[in-house]
Computed example of a mutant assay.
Amino acid sequence: MSVINTHIKPFRNMAFKEGKFIEVTDEAVKGKWSVFFFYPADFTFVCPTELGDVADRYAEFQKLGVEIYSVSTDTHFTHKAWHDSSDTIRKIRYTMIGDPTGTLTRNFDVMREAEGLADRGTFIVDPQGVIQAVEITAEGIGRNATDLLRKVKAAQYVAAHPGEVCPAKWEEGAATLKPSLDLVGKI
């Protein structure tokens, strides 16, 4: 079943952020745009490249009022250890949620039950807690923070401009479409 246009489910997890352990809940993330960035495990291979890519663009997400939450089934303690030992992960300033019970991972329907690991799933969530976009890739396929930023901008644009939609490859400032009877068959 698709999770698009559904509300995020209740959760309460411990996380590591900027040298501290914090609690993150579904209620705490509401009121602003969020990205939940699930990945299989700390101390692996593709995962640090993705998390580092998002870290490099984090200031741009922040300017858009977007908070990033990376999530794996590791603990918040493991996130701290990885942060302390990896130059790539050390540059992360966003929240790293631990999900050792798998509840949050199952809430977003990205748990690989046989392994107890998350798929590579990215979810853009609006301020009301509704999932607006989803991307899921196989374990060996890394994601791109630049394209994620583009998708966030498109989701925010559509939310702010009812009746307009963003076409393929839309970039901020480019033309949008206004679906209507007159447009049918003319694109």
Rank of each mutant, 00 (worst) to 15 (best):
H83P: 01
G185N: 11
I4W: 00
S2F: 00
A41D: 14
F45S: 12
S34E: 05
A138G: 14
E113G: 01
G163C: 02
I89W: 00
S70F: 02
S180P: 06
H76N: 02
L149Q: 08
I131Q: 09
G140P: 00
T25C: 10
V165K: 14
K17I: 14
F77I: 04
W82Q: 07
Q156T: 07
P100M: 10
T137C: 07
Y39Q: 03
A81W: 01
R12F: 02
D56F: 11
A159F: 05
L64N: 11
R120D: 04
D53W: 07
D182C: 01
G102N: 05
G163W: 01
Q128E: 15
T88F: 03
D84H: 04
S2W: 05
P162M: 06
T176L: 02
L104A: 06
A118E: 08
Y69K: 07
H79W: 12
Y39P: 12
G142R: 10
R93L: 12
N107F: 01
A59D: 15
A41I: 08
S2K: 13
A159L: 14
G102F: 11
T146C: 02
T176H: 14
P127N: 05
I141W: 00
A133F: 15
T101C: 05
G65V: 06
A160C: 01
I8N: 07
C166A: 14
G140I: 12
H83A: 11
F43A: 02
I124T: 06
G140N: 13
P167K: 05
E135M: 13
R93K: 15
I89D: 02
R150V: 06
T146A: 15
F36N: 09
R106G: 01
Q128V: 00
G121I: 08
K91V: 07
G163I: 00
V29P: 08
V125C: 09
T137M: 04
K169F: 15
I92M: 13
E172Y: 13
F16Q: 02
K17W: 01
K80L: 12
V46Q: 06
T176F: 04
E50A: 07
M1F: 09
A28K: 15
M111C: 05
R90C: 09
P48V: 05
E171I: 04
T122W: 10
T25H: 09
D42P: 08
E139H: 14
I22E: 13
G140A: 15
D119V: 06
I22V: 15
H79V: 02
G121R: 10
V110R: 04
E164C: 03
F43G: 05
L181G: 09
T6F: 04
T122K: 12
G102E: 04
V66Q: 12
K186S: 07
Q132P: 01
T105P: 08
W170I: 05
G116L: 06
N144S: 14
D84S: 13
K178Y: 00
T25L: 10
F11V: 02
E139C: 06
G121P: 10
E172A: 15
T75H: 09
P179N: 07
I141M: 07
P179F: 10
F45Q: 06
E171F: 10
C166G: 01
S180M: 04
D53F: 05
P40I: 06
R120E: 10
P179V: 08
E27D: 15
H7I: 01
E113I: 09
G129L: 10
N107R: 03
D26G: 12
H83D: 13
N13Y: 11
R57D: 13
E60A: 14
T105L: 04
L148E: 11
I8M: 09
Y58D: 15
V184K: 14
A155V: 09
